[in-house]
Design a protein around this nucleic acid. Sequence first.
DNA 1: TGTAAATAAAAAATGCATATTCTAAAATGC
DNA 2: GCATTTTAGAATATGCATTTTTTATTTACA
Lengths: 230, 230
Amino acid sequence: MNHPILSSSLTESVYATLRADILSARLDPGQKLKIKDLCDRLSAGSSAVREALSRLGSEGLVLLEPQRGFRVAPLSMNELHDLTRTRGQIEALCIRDAIAAGDVEWEIGLMAALHRMLRMPKEVESEPKRYSQAFTDAHTAFHEALVAACVSPWLLTLRRLLFTQSERYRALTRPLAEVERDLDKEHRLIADAALARDADRCVALMEEHLALTARILIEAAAHGSGPLSD
Amino acid sequence: MNHPILSSSLTESVYATLRADILSARLDPGQKLKIKDLCDRLSAGSSAVREALSRLGSEGLVLLEPQRGFRVAPLSMNELHDLTRTRGQIEALCIRDAIAAGDVEWEIGLMAALHRMLRMPKEVESEPKRYSQAFTDAHTAFHEALVAACVSPWLLTLRRLLFTQSERYRALTRPLAEVERDLDKEHRLIADAALARDADRCVALMEEHLALTARILIEAAAHGSGPLSD
DNA sequence: TGTAAATAAAAAATGCATATTCTAAAATGC
DNA sequence: GCATTTTAGAATATGCATTTTTTATTTACA
């Protein structure tokens, strides 16, 4: 459970490690985060841990209750619904912007990111039932590349915020791979539409893409095998 | 410059105080925030101050450079443009949602918030050339009330984030009240459109409302009297 | 003599051990 | 069995130690 990520300051590294553990669902939603335990596990002082947790708090990944410590932000069906819908709306704004403003460099970047993601192994033997870190990174980079030409830094900031939140849910879809899914095809179609400058189609495909991830979790929950409340 | 805001934990209070000082422009954009100074001024230890600054950091109000401390996030014309546009888009989504889903309670809440804001004195003699805290709070509450019926918590979260950012720019429009502006009328028209369930008009009025605040600052900067870079 | 590099001193940020305060649970009494 | 007190554990806060950055000064070189 120890994943030391090197960085400039100790706080940075604690922050990055904790963040990765939450996003990849190595830490359970709702779980209590005891300062002392984390200090031991990450071999850092309470200052560093506390500061990292504060930051994760305002990012929405950690819930902080005054005088009662920190816990991993819970997941729920309700939030999944809301998140999917909202992210769809924001991605749509970004995509339309990017398609309108994208130049050749953008097209090249998108193609490169797509290709890299398609070639990345989705899992490794050391951690089966879980997306590999390499694939996850490439996947994140693909979605970044898709909207890289968006002219609004703030819109991109909002998109990244929601994307991060979605990652937590996405990490849960892999273990229960009941529905067979052609992720590669979904991504390829999205990229095609973007390169063809067909904004409406691209947005529609993206919404479908997001909805499918949500649906997998919802159906799993309906069968009682999901880890979600509500 | 000392504004002790009581709260559950010391960190909370330091956070709230600092936040208010930044939003109201009592702290200058780009200004260095020295830990020790803040400790003395707020009579708190370095942990509390550091933690508060971290949180403000991921909220975008404070810039944090590893090993080089904290500074108040700078303002710029470019960001103002972007912020205005993006906030317009997000407010639009919230407004359409609220108007579609709003019930009688929402209508009542909106009318009440409007009325309270209209009756609130915009300035006090102790701090001329600056919006009164009472008005600022009522203004915030009005904009909250307008979209309170929006069904998406995440959309509202994003809206609040951008609203907070905008507050910093809005606080600067008062000192340079060159352009005479009928704020009351603007807000009244927005509320009217919402209550009439005319989403298109409401969105258009809101965009105008936001654009006007931006224009005042931009024109002031063009005349050299503004405090903005870029 | 002026400029620039190198070094030394100061200031500031980061990290830690410890003390204090608060919460929650166990134990005691009613 | 319920309420109150006690106690253990945990979160919060502090001051100091350490490390890094910045500033000021000196020294070398053109």
